[in-house]
């Protein structure tokens, strides 16, 4: 657990005005990352904000349950992922979730991707990410979707850059296998 996360956690556990300040700083730091992560699954601003609020309520109320077995961001990443997926499944039953705008662009040059709908590819990507081990999924999210450098991811997760590169490489290989298999099934 990195020092800043530790300070925020301790301050929140102590309660009072210091806890509120720490929670505000934590929200400002992790909020945009969590927003991007959730938005990728839910695709609408209003739903994303609702889920983000639920995620932050859980962090605020349950922070003592974080046992420091993983990085703090891994813990909140998992909460956000679970909340987003359960909302996605619930909303999907009601009506198809419409895109505010395209979240991925398909570049020419790969025959399996030609003529595909970006939204369909994004859903497959989300499915593929869901199949990854927790740590690989986290690294993939931060590197591929959020475009962070390995140095930035190292600061968040506390994992060495070498291990992060290996993790990202493995994730890419697994996702490629998954995507090609699914796309060939669809044709």
């Amino acid at each position: 657990m990195k020092d800043q996360d530790q300070k925020w956690r301790n301050a929140i556990l102590h309660g009072g005005p210091e806890a509120e300040r720490a929670f505000r700083d934590l929200s400002l730091f992790y909020g945009p990352k969590l927003y991007s992560q959730i938005f990728k699954i839910l695709k609408t601003d209003s739903l994303t904000k609702d889920v983000l609020q639920d995620v932050f309520i859980k962090i605020w109320l349950n922070i003592e349950q974080f046992k420091e077995k993983s990085s703090f961001y891994s813990w909140i990443f998992r909460i956000a992922h679970n909340e987003a997926i359960s909302t996605f499944n619930r909303e999907k039953r009601k009506t198809a979730i419409s895109l505010d705008h395209e979240l991925i662009e398909i570049l020419p040059g790969d025959s399996d991707l030609e003529g595909r709908n970006p939204d369909q590819i994004l859903e497959l990507l989300n499915e593929a990410t869901d199949e990854l081990p927790k740590k690989q999924a986290l690294v993939f999210e931060l590197k591929y979707f959020q475009g962070l450098s390995y140095k930035e991811i190292q600061e968040i997760t506390g994992t060495s850059q070498g291990a992060l590169k290996a993790s990202f490489h493995l994730a890419k290989e697994k996702i490629e296998t998954f995507l090609r298999f699914k796309l060939n099934q669809l044709t």
Partner: peptide, 20 residues
């Protein structure tokens, strides 16, 4: 890799006022 042909778009996140 197939992912080299899929480019994620940058998500527009709300301002810091929203998170605060």
């Amino acid at each position: 890799n197939i992912l080299d042909h899929i480019k994620p778009a940058k998500t527009t996140v709300p301002s810091s006022d929203f998170f605060a």
